[in-house]
Write a protein that binds this DNA or RNA. Structure first.
Length: 127
DNA sequence: GTTGTGACATCGC
DNA sequence: CGCGATGCCACAA
């Protein structure tokens, strides 16, 4: 069926969106993490995918539907990528209970491990 | 067909 | 530890 993924960018984007939807509330994931979780598309070498896979994820999020929690996707630096609406994203994340330290998120505490996690255990840390 | 840039990641200072 | 600069592929104009 659909063999190449980048031949059908929408297919890759759909994977990113589908994966992003699996991010539970109060958790964040990095672009590189999502890119690594997604299998390397056909027609693309692992090196190529490793080189710019994260950016493709970002490109996918750039056109993500409204039902995709794009707000929970941040960069490996644990910060929000510079872009129009960045403050909006921070507000949304704070609203989900994520604490910001100097415009920075502690990935060690909020980084999403991957698909398969039932729910965030750190729910008791409301205050 | 060519040029420019990117919702990143990594290395260096 | 923080900030700056570079590299890389593919896609858009």
């Amino acid at each position: 069926m659909n063999q190449p993924t980048l031949t059908n960018p929408d297919a890759f984007y759909e994977q990113v969106w589908q994966l992003a939807r699996q991010i539970p509330r109060g958790r964040v994931a990095t672009y590189g993490q999502l890119a690594q979780l997604i299998a390397c598309p056909t027609g693309v070498t692992p090196d190529e995918y490793h080189a710019f896979g994260a950016r493709w994820v970002g490109s996918a999020m750039a056109a993500c539907p409204a039902d995709v929690p794009w707000q929970r996707v941040i960069n490996s630096q644990g910060k929000i990528s510079q872009r129009p609406g960045a403050e909006r994203q921070r507000q949304l994340l704070e609203h989900e209970g994520i604490v910001f330290a100097r415009e920075r998120i502690d990935l060690k505490a909020y980084h999403w491990r991957g698909p398969g996690e039932p729910e965030p255990p750190q729910q008791a840390r409301l205050f």
